[in-house]
Design a protein around this nucleic acid. Structure first.
Lengths: 252, 252
DNA sequence: GATCATAGTCGTCTGCCTGACGATAAACAC
DNA sequence: GTGTTTATCGTCAGGCAGACGACTATGATC
């Protein structure tokens, strides 16, 4: 395998982002509208070329910042500030995935707390948070009866892979806290699990489980009633990243 | 982000392989000796350029076949024949990971049963199975007091990531059977877990666990005494790919 | 052939975790 | 105050895992 520079075909390398958050009890992803062919006018995942002097993680963090003003937080560590969790997802390199040329895309997965409207590059209709169910139902209809075209390129596959990664990873890691603000209640954390998994969880058993797992949650001392009802204790994410024993996702 | 062909830097894209097997109670990886600079004479992971018309998985399967004469089996499905399990691992793209040019490597993980000596491209000392402990201890000494140089490029990191993936994945999937021949005994499967995790497992509890998990193992009816002692039942991998509940890796 | 070593297989028991609840507490809306 | 909502504490039964005893069936050794 000689590394003769003339012996290998040139590739374009991009990063694409699956940015997930939980809004109004639904798992949502960031989507941008394509302004040019191919797939002009269709929704796609945010992304862009990796620069010549840039690491893959740097490129993903840069794209994330450009789209959301989120500081990317280095992977594997739960975000202590309001930075998002960012980790590499998978790489997609089908020769025909981009009709114009050979593009290999290194997809990354970002998990963020609920944010204000996405910041667009000056264009209001450029980017939006869309429920993943809506983005993934091919040619289906969204909540307001508007027809939804499939995502551009192979982005539906990438999004599905990212969602599946998030679903399984909150089972055995403390990553669900990345969907929450710095301080949160047990109920808010439970609603994250319910939104991501799409199931209802028993509040009493959930409370016992998460408060009984050492290192998962640390109480801040404060309370809040922002959810209504009895005031709830506020917690911050503890240092533990791996949950042992894991949270159990209920039956299919 | 226009796709102007002059606007993106060209990359070389390679696949590198972490090929794991279990030999003599030790987890081993396939290593090849580099015949040219950089890192000439050092051990490295097998790999090569992705061709212009080739998918990433195809490239990985081709490289695997060239190095080991293993038919690659498509990912997520446990190999029913003697093909190896193959799945994408992660992508490594540090700008300085190859001193000559910008190379992005899509690493793949392959799990194979114990094989005869690796097939080299005519050169006997070209490739070998090496215990991962030996390959990963930087500048350490191998079993026979021979000094071991670190792997070339960032291959130590890639190998470590692959080993960690294998360690965690046999917990909740039936992937450990990919290390076994088509027919195997419960004891042989247990020794796979022991080698990969580096721990001792109770044979009685292990037997109860794996035979009690529906879809994991199907008896073939035959028995064997190739391990000595009382004849053991032979099994084949069942259809189940996900183990629920998972195998529990003992405490650190 | 008796004995031993080696592996495999079946049971038992105990502790822990989970799921399924009941019950109580503390806020807000009327 | 009454009702509603959410949070939090308890209780109980079933299931699974770890620890370990007991028995079986082969080959090796004397």
């Amino acid at each position: 395998m000689p590394y003769d520079p003339s012996a290998f075909p040139p590739f374009a390398v991009t990063v694409d982002l699956v940015v997930l958050t939980v809004r109004r009890h639904a798992l949502c992803a960031l989507a941008v509208r394509r302004g040019e062919p191919p797939f002009q006018g269709r929704w796609a995942l945010p992304g862009g070329f990796v620069r010549a002097d840039e690491d893959l993680a740097q490129a993903a963090a840069r794209e994330l910042a450009e789209e959301t003003a989120l500081r990317a937080h280095d992977q594997t560590v739960p975000a202590p500030d309001n930075g998002a969790h960012l980790e590499q997802l998978a790489t997609y390199g089908d020769p025909k995935r981009d009709p114009r040329m050979r593009v290999v895309s290194v997809a990354h997965l970002a998990l963020a707390p609920d944010l204000p409207a996405p910041r667009a590059g000056g264009d209001a209709s450029y980017a939006r948070w869309a429920p993943v169910d809506e983005l993934l139902q091919q040619s289906g209809y969204g909540r307001d009866e508007e027809p939804v075209a499939p995502l551009a390129f192979d982005h539906a596959q990438i999004l599905a892979d990212g969602v599946e990664r998030a679903r399984s990873k909150i089972e055995y890691s403390s990553l669900a806290t990345a969907f929450c603000p710095t301080e949160f209640t047990v109920g808010e954390l439970r609603r994250v699990y319910e939104a991501v998994w799409g199931v209802a969880l028993d509040p009493r058993n959930f409370h016992r489980k998460v408060t009984g797992t050492p290192g998962f949650l640390v109480p801040t001392g404060g309370t809040t009633t922002r959810q209504g009802g009895r005031p709830a204790q506020l917690f911050r994410a503890g240092g533990a990243t791996l949950l042992n024993p894991p949270m159990l996702r209920p039956e299919v």
